[in-house]
Simulated scan of single mutants.
Amino acid sequence: MFENTSKCEDCLYYEYDDEYGFYVCDMDLDEDETAQFIGGRFQNCPYYRPGDEYTIVRKQI
């Protein structure tokens, strides 16, 4: 899980992690994907799922 500030902010998998104290991607990325994500080059994420506030809240319940 790593922090990223692109269009992840409206992704269903972008969740707040109490342990880290910031938002992270909750998908299991492989080594190459993780390197791209950390480097900020993960713009066309194959796991991206749009989620509005209501979708995200329903998932957490």
Rank of each mutant, 00 (worst) to 15 (best):
K7Y: 01
D52H: 02
Y13I: 07
D52T: 03
D52M: 07
D10F: 01
R41P: 03
N4Q: 06
Y14I: 07
K7E: 00
E53V: 11
D30E: 13
F42D: 00
N44L: 03
P50C: 05
G51C: 07
T5A: 08
D52K: 01
D17L: 11
C8M: 08
V24I: 13
Y14R: 03
R41T: 09
M1E: 15
A35K: 12
D18S: 15
D18L: 14
Y48F: 12
L12D: 02
Q43D: 05
Y16K: 07
F2N: 08
F37P: 00
Q36S: 09
I38D: 08
Y23N: 08
Y47R: 02
L29M: 11
Q60F: 09
V24K: 01
E9L: 10
I61W: 10
A35H: 07
N4T: 12
C45P: 01
F22H: 14
D30K: 08
K7F: 00
C25T: 05
E15V: 15
F2Y: 13
I61P: 03
Y14P: 00
Y13S: 09
Y23W: 13
Y48H: 06
Y13F: 15
C11V: 00
I61V: 13
E9F: 10
G51K: 02
M1P: 10
F37H: 09
Y20L: 15
D32I: 10
G51R: 00
F37M: 15
G40L: 06
I38L: 13
T55H: 05
R58D: 15
Y23P: 00
E9R: 03
Y23Q: 04
C25R: 01
Y54P: 04
T5N: 09
Y16T: 03
P46H: 01
D28V: 14
Y47H: 09
Q43C: 04
D18I: 14
A35M: 09
L29W: 01
Q43H: 06
Q36W: 04
Y47C: 03
F2I: 12
Y20E: 15
N44S: 06
N4E: 10
T55W: 04
D28S: 11
